[in-house]
Nucleic acid binder design. Structure first.
Lengths: 249, 249
DNA sequence: CGTGAGATTGACTATATTCAACCCTAGTGG
DNA sequence: CCACTAGGGTTGAATATAGTCAATCTCACG
């Protein structure tokens, strides 16, 4: 953010896989040293500045990649401009799929992003030869599928207030710095418009619901991008989800 | 339907994998004869009558399975009863995931269903040893992920009319018997309520939109469960999707 | 200090939901 | 054989929720 905006650098000096921050969570998580060496030899890094489009929908998919740092979004846009985010990519998440020539949605960097890229055809043959990669890719896909299904419930059935509460609770859980119960300052590194596209709302409705939750003492904004959760219990009540996360009868 | 309702039979006589109707599409699609023999020895069939619940959310997941015949749905229900379908399982689709003890949603048979089941722990070790299974499972998961993401756009951004048009077009495409352009009678084997839960609407809205499309001459109902598409072009216009399926600039 | 992108707020409107009455139709039992 | 019933389905009227349009505000940045 406070760094100068850099142009879309085609590749930067790679770090060693063994020291990679996503080594044990990304597509390479199950790989042994030999397999890692193959990946090491074919990987290249690319960086994108906040706001850059990483891939356009329909574009031929020349590489697949893991997110090393930063956050990217997947989104679909209709002819008349209505758009819906269909996924959030955090470090260790995977972009692209073996066997597909094109990508079905736009991929955009919301903050500065570094990708660890692999040439798609070469990666595809590697998937066939290296069971550890297919296994991990399966796990990643199934995890994303679970997340997508939770999101479908939100999009199809939750009210605006429930959507916002769910979103905030997700952020709160994700950014809880160690000790529980503390009122961390949470960074909302998205615009109201992006949040609206994520939740299937308009930006005005997002703004109104934030204001309402603030008025009700559930959250408090220090500025437009930073807030604290004042009443976690109330927040969880508002999400519409079961109390303990799903296993209630 | 016209057969007597049978009780939930724990297992029925299995057919040979080599003659299985889903042999080349299911999780076993890439398996060679040796691998198939292992699967053959551990599989068992279960059948469920239309309306039966196959698995309840939160239930310990003792088996994983492929759908051999019939249709099942995945759905999530909120405390107050609002429910959202999050997936449709057709023959060759897979239920359950290795590495998860519990299932996150209800699985229900909408018509009579036959499953090809595998004991979960044994299947999990097989996934580790048999790359062809992990590869195929990855492909199936990625396909479902693509479908889930299309559905997210529908749920988050489409109007009631667009949702219904998309739904009908999906049915029309799926049940087109060979020659294109013919007016096939399409079987709507779901109630208005189930359709509503699928599309994130109420059953009244579903009914109203069907009536409106009929009045506009786009579709025609012979009875409540059967209709024909009278104007495919108009139907596609109403879906809100791009004309040729997505790759337009 | 001016500018512009993003955010907030208000007034009005549209869309889909809710509530309720009524209608089919298939299946049941007298 | 026919009337009754129940589970879906349709339709209408009133309502609520979120969307649209528009004015104003805030704040970071040049």
């Amino acid at each position: 953010m406070n760094q100068p905006k850099k142009l879309n650098t085609p590749s930067v000096a790679p770090i060693k896989c063994s020291q990679c921050p996503i080594r044990h969570r990304a597509v390479c998580a199950r790989c042994d040293d030999d397999e890692l060496e193959i990946l090491e030899s074919m990987k290249s890094y690319k960086t994108y500045a906040a706001g850059d489009v990483i891939l356009w929908r329909g574009e031929p998919l020349e590489f697949v990649a893991s997110v090393v740092t930063g956050v990217a979004t997947l989104s679909k846009t209709m002819e008349d401009g209505r758009t819906q985010m269909v996924g959030l990519l955090l470090p260790s998440d995977f972009i692209g799929r073996p066997g597909r020539e094109q990508i079905e949605f736009d991929v955009t960097a919301t903050v500065d992003v570094t990708l660890c890229c692999f040439d798609r055809p070469r990666f595809e043959s590697l998937v066939c030869e290296t069971p550890h990669i297919a296994q991990r890719l399966m796990e990643l896909a199934l995890d994303e599928l679970d997340a997508a299904r939770d999101w479908m419930l939100l999009l199809g059935r939750k009210t605006a207030r429930e959507k916002i509460a769910t979103f905030i609770e997700m952020l709160a859980r994700r950014s809880s710095h160690g000790q529980d119960g503390s009122k961390d300052v949470i960074d909302l590194h998205m615009t109201r418009d992006q949040i609206a596209n994520y939740l299937g709302l308009t930006l005005e409705t997002v703004s109104r619901q934030f204001s309402a939750l603030k008025k009700d003492g559930v959250i408090d904004f220090s500025d437009r991008k930073h807030f604290t959760v004042e009443d976690i219990a109330a927040l969880q009540d508002e999400t519409g989800d079961d109390a303990d996360g799903g296993v209630v009868y």
